[in-house]
Simulated assay, not measured.
Amino acid sequence: MRKIIAVVDDEEKIREIIKSFLHNEGYEVLEAEDGKEAIELADQQAIDLMLLDIMMPNMDGLQALREIRLINRKLPVIMLTAKSEEIDKLLGLEMGADDYMTKPFSMRELAARMRAVLRRSAPDVEAAEVDEIIKRGDIEINLNTYEAFINGETLNLTPTEYKILVTLAQKPGRVYSRLQLLDISMGEAFANYERSIDTHVSNLRKKVEKDPAHPEYIHTVYGMGYRFGDKK
């Protein structure tokens, strides 16, 4: 079955270029020209991944992403923008974006980023065959259904947050460097974005910790990386 990609950009020419390329790559493409239409697509269509521009009229991509995450926490989203400031990247990541690309970009790079995001948003079948359920304290992760819970309540995690949680929870006590977590959750192509892991971990802590400033589960090992507490 062909993957369905939503391309959201107010510039028709850009949408047409991306659409033509993605069609040749075997994807089905849906289009929207502003944030409001993006929200409607996320709410009404079965989408595998959204390419979401930031600078748009009526409602920009960051506002749209905030609303989309209330509708669908699991929809993979790659932000597109002409801006290159670090603050825009951090804002997008904090709101739940899975990746960020600055215009202009090559179609080959876009395809590689999309494959990486789609790959890490899919359930880990091999891991599911080994251990279907991971239980750590009040956290439970079902590797078959690609779901995580805390005290029986569903954790609304982005694909990257889910990958980080699974990686750390599978081996409590083991320290993972930022680069290792980046490679596992986002792929080696993102080596230059090592510090973005800090943002994803911070977002994850807000969802799983009673007091994110004093975490029980996800510990920082200063100068090294992160580890999962020894929760049974």
Rank of each mutant, 00 (worst) to 15 (best):
Y222L: 13
V117S: 10
S20K: 12
M1P: 09
L51I: 08
I71E: 03
M59D: 01
I71K: 08
D34M: 00
K19F: 00
G26L: 05
L143Q: 14
I71M: 01
H23S: 06
E94R: 12
L118V: 10
M101W: 06
S177Y: 05
L51W: 01
S84E: 04
Q63T: 03
K13W: 00
V175W: 04
L165Q: 09
L62R: 00
L182W: 06
D10N: 05
L182F: 04
K36C: 04
M186A: 12
K171L: 08
K103L: 02
S20P: 04
V221D: 08
S84N: 10
E216C: 10
N142Y: 09
A122Y: 08
E126H: 12
V175R: 06
K19V: 02
A169H: 07
L91E: 09
L51V: 09
V8E: 02
G223V: 11
V29E: 01
D183T: 15
K89C: 09
I133N: 11
G173F: 05
K103T: 02
L30C: 10
T199Q: 06
M79R: 04
P159A: 11
E216A: 12
V130D: 15
G223N: 11
L93R: 00
Y27L: 01
I71H: 03
P215H: 01
M79D: 01
S177F: 03
G96I: 04
H200L: 10
I39G: 00
T102E: 05
K74W: 02
I150P: 02
G223S: 12
R66A: 12
R15F: 01
S177L: 07
K171E: 13
E132M: 14
Q63C: 04
E67F: 03
A169N: 09
S202L: 12
V130M: 15
D60V: 02
S20F: 06
K207W: 05
A32S: 00
L49V: 05
S106W: 05
A46K: 15
G61N: 02
R115L: 03
V8C: 09
D131K: 15
A111S: 14
V130S: 15
M114W: 08
K19I: 01
A38Q: 03
Y193F: 13
R108L: 14
F190D: 11
